[in-house]
Each structure stands twice: as structure tokens, then as C-alpha cells.
Design a protein around this nucleic acid. Structure first.
Lengths: 356, 356
DNA sequence: AATAGAATTGGAAACGTTTCCAAACAAGTT
DNA sequence: AACTTGTTTGGAAACGTTTCCAATTCTATT
């Protein structure tokens, strides 16, 4: 309704200068008890609140951290943001959030926007950390920042899963269960350095264990034709016994597609996912997957940026092998002797395998 | 590294006044072609970008919309935010996000924070829309706002599921499947008017169909003791055949607990959820639930606030009965003649039942 | 009673914009 | 040549703060 009251209004009502009001309200400098009372009364009467805009202009810093992520609909990022939120809130910072929908162009414009809003720092997930224009702008400006879910090029802090190591761990899991030829399923392969690094690490892992080079099954934005693609893929590569999906949603989707093709998971086709979203434990069979801790990573990235801002000690990200765990699940079959059973799986084996 | 360039630096480098730079860059007022070139050159050389802080102070409006939601970890809100994001981005607005973790106190402080940051509008989900202090502050200030997932008291716009009607629809579903006595499972019952309204609507619906009054099963923050609580609940209410869970996560959790008690879902206990998250289709049996459209609601709330700001026509929220659908699923058993079968369920019946 | 020192107070500048206004200048009309 | 008109330009005020500094008032000491 009415325009917000400013510090001038308060000064007028309290019968003093604006400097005094500022001093009283911020508890900086001295003020007589009587004056404090008058100011407090005026504030109450006018329901006064400082304008952060005025403050920011004066102090040339906002208590706001910018976040750039591909999507909030993906629970991995949603959880990471939740973790960061809790950290920021404790320190009195707010979160300015921009989603890029996996588009590198929006990435750059998002960063420009955040810079002109003068955020105090930025946490971001980019499409390609090695050649992100936005990222170099940030560095050039010397803006406190931290990557999230991107493995960092030199001179950038980062909280991330070690994609290559985790993917190699998947190769190990397949290998231990006597799978020799597998596929790698990716979405947006060209738009995500995560997917590429997982593939790379997976190839290395497979090679190291004497497995065949994994075939790449790449799909487009919408899953619509996944079943047909899978059918084609399997007919082109008939000896494939397992598929590593670059995230759990893809893994669940490919399980469904396999079913539609009358394939039994895991007997006919084993699946391993990536991310470790909770749902993986609720489906039948349970999803074998790499478990990550998005909340921890988000919180870490948040703490890192805050530590840059406050010039306090920068928190150490977990070492590479502590950023993930392999979780066994019913979607991964052992191809040895016992594989002749009826393919039955225990309903909810929530057994963790905390490999290093 | 170096301090950001200001409009003054640009003016200096271009050899003109700041007013001219402002005019050229904003394309407001006239400027000679030669001057435009000089300014453009200076901007490029300095990598100049306007400070939104300065602009906001001058225009007394930020291109920022504040969002207050209980949690981003809950996919219902995450999806709603995603929907809103897309709308905001199109209009050049940003999202300032605060999570309250279902705490009414944080709610108020979040709103105060947003007000002092001078957001142009607010989209919010409160704990209790009827008596939210924050909400009345917003109204008193005449700040453009829209409720999300709260059924609105008079004089507030709102995009929300009609909880009462949806809950009544659940009663109908139970009734049609010949269930007579059921329970209602809620978390944070006292902190969420959604849960309360669902219970209320459910009670009304049950009564209307001649069912017994549903028993309330309330659980605390963490699900830990859910199985024991369920056991106790069922022993106290032995004739209960179905449970309406106030959200899908609870529904999935209660399915698990029922299993641990060696109960067959749905033969021994039917479950109906609320929200319609995708996971419900991936579990076995599939979850019967109320399906809602979080993205649509979030986008609608965003559009509403923008329309207030731009004084354009306010979009109409969907009518009450269009805010949800009942989705049949394997977790709901028919208690009539056929109930003597072996309890087998088809794996993925994604059959929708678009009841008005 | 005079003065030193401390406590309290308010004016004004600065932060980075936009916009009003008047000044300077160009070009066309008598 | 003296106007009128229109375009281009820059100075200055305003937006809401904080903070420096100088001015005023108070308290205690001589």
C-alpha cells in the first residue's frame, strides 16, 4: 500500500539525524539511552526495515550467493541446493538461483546476470568446466566461487564426485560379476562434461580389467524412443550383458524399456546407475548404482564460497575416493555358476558396499 | 581482480558525461552516431556491466521475485520452482529462494529478508495461510504476491491443489473398492495446513459415503519408528483395510513398513498416496495416488505475480476439480468378489483415471 | 568557576544509477 | 542576419544507506 519507510522517515519521527538512526540500529558508535528509545519507537511505529539495496550500494556487497545449476527438477541438484541453503541461512546469506536447462548459452547469461546483481559469490555447475567462458569471466573478476559437480581445472575450487574413479568402480563391479561386454547410456552427452568423464573413466576401467570397450548408447532430450533405441542397440551388439547408465533416471528408464522388450533384468540384462537417488531402493529389483551425497557437496561448495568471502580457512573437499560408494543391487546379476537360478531377487536388499 | 568498472569510468574513457552513457546504453534519448561508437568502444574495453544495485536504488525495484517454500528436497516444490523458473527467465526476472524447513518462524524471517531485499514480488507456501503473520505483512505492504500450495484466504491469489476435494476423491476411491474403515497418515500435521485440509476433506468424503471416520496416524520428523507405529496402529484398529497417506513419500514408506510386518500390499492393506510423483509408477505395486502438476502450479504462481507487477491481466488458476486427478494403482485392492485372487498385480499399469 | 576530556549528535560525502533540465549547437525559415 | 526549431550533450538531484568529521553537550577534575 504505502511506500516503505526509509531511514529519513525514522529520523524525522524520532527527531534526530539519519546518522544517529543508523548508529542506533546497527549498534555502531554511541547513542544516549533516551535516543535509543525514541528511535526504537519510531521504527516500531513505521514498521521500518532497512533497504538492503541502499546498504548494498554503500557497502558494495550483497549478502547473496548466486547459484547456477542445470535444473532443479533433477533431485541431485535439488538436494545439493538444499544442502547449500542450510549453510547459507546460518550465515545470513540468501540464494539467488538460476537454472540453465543444460544450455551453455544460458550459462553465460546467467553468470552475467549474477555479476550485475553483484552477488558476493557464485556456486555453479557448468556444461564444460575446461572451456567455460562464464567461468573465466568469474575468475578474471576475482569473484569468490566454487564449482559443484564439475571436476575443477586448476585454480578453481570444486566439490564434485570423482566421475572417472566412480565409473571405473562400475567397471570393477561388472567385471567382478563376470560381465565382459557392456554399454554406456548417456543423455546430453555433448552438453555435460560429467557424462563424458564418466564414459572416459568407464572405458579406462573396462580396459584395465580386460573387458571389451563399452559401446555408447546416446539418447536425445526426451526418452520417448528409448525402447526402440535399446532394441536396435542390442541387436547391433548382441553379446552385451550389462549397461551402465550415466544417471539413475536413465537407469530406471532403461529397466522399463528392457521390460517392454520382454527382457528380464538382471538375468538378460544387468543395469548399473549413477547418483544413488532414494528411489533406486524402492524399485524392484533394486538398482545397483554409484551412491553420491549431493547435500554434502552442495553444503561444501557453499561453505567454500563463504570462506573466500570471509577470508577464513577454505574447507577441504573430500578426497576423490570418498565422493562415492558403490551400492550393490538386484539389477546386477552374477554371470557365474549361480546364474542358472530363476532370476528371483530379494525384494529390499539395502545392503551397502562401502568400498573404500 | 580489479574493481568493476562503473558508468563513470565509461564516461571518462568515452570522453562524455555519465548521462550520455546511460542514454546510449539504455537506448533512451538521443545520441549522435559517433558518440554511440565511442561509448560502445569504452564499454567493450572496460568489460562494463551495469550494477543492478545502483539501478535498483534509482528505480526502487529489483527484477527479482522471492520464493519461500518448505524445502527443495521435496520434488513437489522442486518441480514447482522449476516451472516458475522458466516463466521468470522469459521475463528477465531472477529467483531469490529461501527454504523454511517447515518452520513457521523461519517463514516470517524469510519474508522480512525478502522485503528488505526489495523483491518485486513474492511466491510463497506458508505453514498456515489463515494465520500467517508474514502473509499479512506482505498484504499490508501491498507487495505483489501469490500463494503456492496453500488454499487462499480471501484477498490472496493462489495456485494450489484443492486439498479437500482431492481428499474426498480418495474417499470415493476407497469406497468404490468397498473399503469401509481406513486410516490417515500424516507427518508434521501441526505444521502444514495442507495435511490438515486433506484430513478434513477426507473425513467429509468418508462420511458422505457412509464410511467410518478415518483414524489419524501421525508421525514425527523422521520415519524411523514408522513400522512400530503402524503395528500399534493396526492392532488398535484391527478392522482397517486401507491407509490414505498425505504424500507419496509417506505412502512409499508405509508400504515398506507394511512389508516388514509381513503384510501384503494391497491384499492386507491398501495404500493411496498424494502428489503423484513419478516414482509411484516405478515401484511394485504401483502407487494409487492423487496426481498433481507442480510445474504447472509453480509456473502459474510465477505468472500471477508477474502480472501484478506489470499490471496485466491476472491469469486464472485452474478450477478446483482441475488441480488433481486420481490415478489408479496396484496399491489399492478391490475388496469384493475378486479379492480372493492371489494378490498379483500387473507390473506397470500406467492407466490414468482422469476423473473430473 | 574554568577547562580538559569523553560522549553524543548531525551534516555531508560517497556508493552507481536514471532523469530532469538547461545549455550548446546545427539547420532551416523568414 | 536574426529567428525558430530540433538535436545532442552534460550537470545535478535523487534513490537509501554508512561513515567521516566537526560541532555540541555532558562530566569530572582542577
Amino acid at each position: 500500500m504505502h511506500q516503505s519507510a526509509t531511514i529519513k522517515d525514522v529520523a524525522l519521527k524520532a527527531g534526530c539525524g539519519v546518522a544517529t538512526v543508523s548508529r542506533v540500529l546497527n549498534n555502531t558508535g554511541s547513542a544516549s539511552p533516551e535516543m535509543r528509545i525514541r528511535v526504537a519507537a519510531a521504527v516500531k511505529e513505521l514498521d521500518f526495515q532497512f533497504s538492503e539495496v541502499g546498504r548494498s550500494l554503500q557497502s558494495s556487497t550483497t549478502r547473496t550467493i548466486g547459484f547456477v545449476v542445470p535444473s532443479i527438477a533433477n533431485p541431485v541438484y535439488a538436494d545439493a541446493l538444499q544442502g547449500a541453503q542450510e549453510i547459507l541461512t546460518c550465515s545470513g546469506y540468501q540464494m539467488l538461483l538460476i537454472c540453465t536447462n543444460y544450455s551453455p548459452e544460458s550459462e553465460l547469461s546467467a553468470i552475467r546476470t549474477l555479476i550485475s546483481k553483484q552477488v558476493a559469490g557464485i556456486v555453479l555447475t557448468v556444461s564444460d568446466a575446461e572451456r567455460s567462458e562464464g567461468l573465466s569471466i568469474i575468475r578474471n573478476r576475482g569473484l569468490p566461487h566454487c564449482l559443484l559437480y564439475n571436476n575443477a581445472p586448476v585454480s578453481h575450487e570444486s566439490w564434485s564426485v570423482d566421475d572417472k574413479a566412480a565409473a571405473a568402480r562400475v567397471a570393477q563391479a561388472f567385471s567382478e560379476n563376470l560381465h565382459n561386454q557392456t554399454g554406456f547410456l548417456a543423455l546430453n552427452f555433448n552438453k555435460s562434461d560429467r557424462a563424458r568423464q564418466r564414459y572416459e573413466g568407464y572405458c579406462v576401467g573396462c580396459k584395465a580389467r580386460g573387458m571389451k570397450k563399452p559401446q555408447l548408447l546416446e539418447i536425445s532430450e526426451d526418452f520417448e524412443d528409448l525402447t526402440m533405441k535399446l532394441k536396435l542397440f542390442l541387436s547391433e551388439n548382441p553379446s552385451i550383458t550389462g549397461i551402465f547408465a550415466s544417471n539413475d533416471f536413465l537407469a530406471l528408464a532403461i529397466v522399463r524399456s528392457a521390460r517392454k522388450l520382454a527382457l528380464n533384468v538382471p538375468r538378460d540384462l544387468s543395469i548399473i546407475g549413477f547418483d544413488g537417488i532414494d528411489v533406486g531402493l524402492m524399485v524392484e529389483p533394486t538398482l545397483a548404482t554409484i551412491v553420491t551425497e549431493p547435500k554434502m557437496l552442495g553444503a561444501g561448495a557453499g561453505r567454500t564460497v563463504l570462506s573466500f568471502i570471509n577470508k577464513t580457512e577454505v574447507p577441504k573437499p573430500p578426497s576423490a575416493d570418498q565422493t562415492f560408494n558403490f551400492r550393490a543391487g538386484g539389477s546386477l546379476a552374477y554371470l557365474g555358476a549361480e546364474s542358472s537360478d530363476d532370476g528371483k531377487i530379494t525384494p529390499f536388499p539395502s545392503s551397502f558396499d562401502p568400498t573404500n
